[in-house]
Design a protein around this nucleic acid. Structure first.
Lengths: 205, 205
DNA sequence: GCATGTGAACGGATTCACAGCG
DNA sequence: CGCTGTGAATCCGTTCACATGC
């Protein structure tokens, strides 16, 4: 049922479905149902069926969903069939950890460029990847045509860097800096701040 | 207006408000309004007022909110006035990065115990903190009375470890493992999986 | 005047429940 | 019979708009 605008909250669940399906595939499961998938994820089967139905009819009545097929469809919808080259800005402790994280490549992302403003770091390498100057970042990102970036600078500098990323043509930013950033509506931002999640939980203790 | 059950989605925004207010405090701002706060965060002022009103009347009509006072109230509500001692399970690359992350202590959390199942790591230290055996984890966590844990083991092992944490009396788990875990309803889980966020964004590119 | 706190109105998301089909 | 896909119904969250009070 393509055509109508799909709610963002639905798109946000698709990666979760994909992750669970890949696990099922690893377990040599060939077919599954909305019920099984929901049980794994703590989501109702109706929710899953409705979400998927926004993009097409992927299941068979009485049978369920073919795991490999649905994985393929979700990858297509999420545009992660190919690997995205990503720029990483900020190579402090956090940025280094992100750069070393092995979990990206299998799921659609490769860190392809590093940037920092510290002269002591510029020109050095992290795993064979050169750290470039943020002063020349805009041109460098433009030249490579990168569309996705990760932000791992201190909160203070995040807004300024974000604006440069937008200027460079970046359209999606994963922000590890513990602050909100303001960007034009056509640029997507997602935040990773573990402390927010921790503080949410402690309320209930 | 305490008494009624507050929606989880509201509790989830409070840490965001707290973070922005602390920033304002750092900027020596003494008073703010729901409008100002909302502009920073990309949230409507009505939303912020309604969220806060769930817990009391913290503002003054015609004036707004006292920043320091509201920070104190939010810390109280979120129970982060004191520092929580946290167990970290899994001291691989990811776990080490989490252990080194300097952003926890200022915001209510201290990593106070490390666990791993690798004999080569057990008994060694990370920043003066001993890595203990997961085999003796349940007793160790119980003995210290820890209530909060972070999970940084491979996806495969996450469920088993989660069950041990529950057995040990842990009531809140921050899960860095890229998988869903099932725990009793009285235990809270929050997930950090940057790839999910990335895949959500690429859909729109 | 200005900004909060809040009932009422609205809109959107989830769940229900079943027709349809393998 | 089993499970999907989906309109209808329900539930929940957000926004509106204004009375209240500094």
């Amino acid at each position: 049922m393509a055509g109508a605008p799909v709610p963002d909250i639905v798109v946000g669940r698709l990666p979760l479905y994909l992750r669970a399906l890949v696990q099922m595939g690893d377990e040599a499961k060939e077919v599954t149902s909305s019920q099984q998938l929901g049980d794994r994820l703590g989501i109702s089967s109706a929710q899953i069926r409705k979400d998927l139905s926004q993009f097409g009819e992927f299941g068979k009545q009485g049978t369920g969903y073919n795991v490999a097929f649905l994985i393929g469809q979700l990858k297509r919808i999420l545009k992660v069939e190919k690997i995205w080259d990503v720029a990483l800005v900020g190579v402090g402790d956090l940025g280094r950890a992100v750069a070393h994280y092995a979990g990206f490549i299998d799921r659609g992302f490769r860190i392809a460029a590093l940037f920092d403003s510290d002269p002591a770091k510029i020109g050095t390498r992290v795993d064979d990847l050169l750290i470039e100057d943020t002063g020349t970042m805009v041109e460098s990102i433009r030249a490579r045509g990168l569309k996705v970036a990760m932000l791992a600078v201190p909160a203070r500098g995040a807004q300024v860097v974000a604006e440069k990323l937008v200027e460079a043509g970046i359209q999606a930013i994963l922000c590890y800096a513990p602050t909100s950033i303001n960007v034009p509506a056509n640029v997507r931002v997602q935040y990773i701040d573990p402390v927010l999640r921790m503080q949410q939980m402690t309320h209930y203790l």
